[in-house]
């Protein structure tokens, strides 16, 4: 029996990092896809489905690169359809039920703002393929941010009802935003290799974006120092993820050898 402790290799860390990023986008994209056919108006229905597809597309290319880095001949679909909830590493903020339109917009805004700064940093990582992917995704993220920010302004500064609903949404979701900035040994190892973003560097920019937008939307900014949930990156989730995965995975698991042909 070996007495060596398992050391985290750069390869392991990059695989894990890519899967974390991909899981966030897949789960959020899936949640957003639940609006398809249920949008408040036709135009917004199309917009939400469109953004959902962007997220799923980002996830697909991140998973693709992850299995390439892993180098075990695994297909990306294997990560998507054959992992259980505890193996998923997405942040809890992405798996919460879609709620009303205000809740969806509040989450999209907070996450798109975070993604915007994250991808700006990832565009400069010292890995051509990863950086190229980030640069491509950043263009779409800019649009996601613009779309959700404009809606925050209109719902916050709209009618009494829209104001109240989106204010409640921000209050309810707030306990989940702290985790956006969670970093552990995975990020630290990769930051040393210039292969990961350091969210500490853009935390104040993100806060400024959020505060400015909420204030412009005549909304109150909840307390950043309140209790924040954690543990998502270790596979701790809300009860909602299991239901989401059941729906997303059941067909693939029922017919594991099924083919499009």
């Amino acid at each position: 029996m070996s007495t060596e402790t398992t050391t985290l290799t750069k390869q392991d860390a990059l695989f894990e990092y890519l899967v974390r990023l991909a899981d966030d986008r897949l789960i959020l994209g899936h949640r957003l896809s639940e609006w398809c056919g249920h949008g408040p108006i036709l135009e917004e229905d199309i917009a939400l489905a469109n953004i959902s597809l962007d997220y799923i597309g980002h996830a697909a290319s991140l998973y693709e690169y992850a299995v390439e880095v892993e180098d075990k001949g695994r297909h990306r679909d294997n990560l998507v359809y054959f992992r259980n909830d505890v193996e998923y590493k997405n942040l809890k903020i992405t798996e919460l039920p879609k709620g009303d339109f205000g809740f969806t917009i509040a989450r999209q805004f907070l996450f798109a703002g975070f993604s915007y700064f994250l991808y700006k940093q990832l565009s400069d990582v010292e890995d051509e393929q990863f950086a190229g992917m980030a640069q491509k995704h950043l263009k779409e993220v800019k649009y996601h941010l613009r779309h959700s920010r404009e809606w925050v302004l209109r719902l916050g500064d709209g009618t009494d009802e829209s104001h109240e609903r989106i204010q409640n949404s921000f209050n309810d979701i707030w306990t989940y935003v702290g985790e956006l900035f969670h970093q552990d040994e995975i990020e630290e190892l990769l930051q040393g290799e210039k292969l990961a973003a350091d969210s500490e560097n853009f935390k104040s920019d993100w806060k400024e974006l959020v505060v400015d937008t909420l204030e412009e939307a005549t909304l109150e900014v909840p307390d950043f120092d309140q209790f924040m949930v954690e543990g998502s990156r270790d596979g701790l989730h809300t009860e909602h993820l299991g239901h989401l995965l059941a729906e997303m995975q059941h067909l693939r698991r029922s017919y594991p050898d099924a083919d499009w042909e």
Binding site: E43, E44, I46, A47, N50, Y143, R146, H147, E150, R154
Partner: peptide, 10 residues
């Protein structure tokens, strides 16, 4: 602004 965004999406 929303007309422009909707136009982009639609």
């Amino acid at each position: 602004e929303m007309a422009l965004e909707n136009a982009r999406d639609v």
